[in-house]
């Protein structure tokens, strides 16, 4: 405190205080301004019209003028609003380049535009709707039961700890560590890309919530044992031992031998 007291009359102090005050006011305003109630997205006729325009401009070259599908892209009839929301808001669609699998990236459309596109595609043929906040909430769901269901239905592709894994011919099941509850629910309902559909008929919403709760549990799990090495199991652990640890041991043995005196 002596250090501060001795320098409180320094002319730079005034400048510093001014900067701090500006940052506090500006930052505070920005924080308040961001808290706006989310717009309830009722799919009005204008929204469908808006979505059709966006669709014709951005999607129709691959999915066809009537969403009937072409050689370059599948039909969107019956995929529902949930599929559009999943693919477009995760940035997977529109595709950056043709490849084995669409890659998640920064979305090309804002929330309003995604909602419009979803409303348009949903207006063409019935399909799964975008899950509500309530659908995606997993409050009080049984995590242990979710673990059982995850290992039976999801672990074969996404790996037992949700780390993702390889499929055939360059395709892969993505890592789930950043997945949002709504995204997971949409993926299960719509079966994006190689993933099969897990319908409410065979896996009711209650079970889906349990699976989401389990994934959330995995996402927030700490590693009490230390380095988790990607949670890939014995393969990475063995590789780490045989390469890094053994190299260090051999290096130490050589060092002891060289350092004669």
């Amino acid at each position: 405190m002596k250090f501060l007291a001795a320098r409180r009359r320094n002319p730079l102090v005034a400048l510093g205080l001014l900067l701090a005050a500006l940052v506090a006011v500006g930052g505070g305003y920005a924080a308040i301004a961001n808290v706006q109630p989310a717009q309830a997205s009722a799919s009005s006729q204008t929204q469908v019209e808006e979505g059709k325009k966006l669709y014709l401009a951005g999607c129709s070259s691959c999915h066809g003028m009537e969403a009937q599908g072409t050689a370059n892209g599948p039909t969107l009839l019956g995929v529902g609003a949930a599929a559009v929301d999943f693919q477009v808001s995760s940035g997977r669609m529109p595709l950056a380049a043709p490849g084995a699998q669409a890659v998640a990236k920064a979305p090309s459309y804002n929330e309003e535009q995604v909602a419009a596109l979803a409303a348009y595609v949903a207006s063409l043929a019935p399909g799964p709707a975008i899950p509500t906040e309530e659908d995606a909430s997993f409050e009080g769901a049984n995590v242990a039961q979710g673990g059982v269901l995850f290992r039976t239905n999801c672990a074969q592709c996404h790996q037992a700890a949700g780390q993702g894994a390889a499929l055939t011919q360059g395709k892969w099941a993505p890592n789930l560590m950043q997945a949002e509850p709504k995204e997971i629910l949409e993926a299960m309902l719509t079966g994006p890309q190689s993933m099969p559909v897990f319908s409410d008929g065979t896996l009711p919403l209650e079970n889906k919530k349990q699976i989401i709760a389990y994934i959330n549990n995995l996402q927030n799990a700490s590693s009490p044992g230390g380095l988790d090495l990607g949670r890939l199991g014995p393969v990475t652990e063995g590789l780490f031992l045989w390469t890094a640890v053994f190299a260090a041991l051999i290096g130490a043995a050589i060092w002891i031998g060289i350092k004669a005196r």
Binding site: L149, T152, P196, V197, S199, G201, T202, L203
Partner: peptide, 21 residues
Amino acid sequence: VVDETYQPIKPEDLPVGGLVS
């Protein structure tokens, strides 16, 4: 029946592209 939940399955429960263990 569905593995783990032992729920019987009707054909209409399983959409095209669906998978059940």
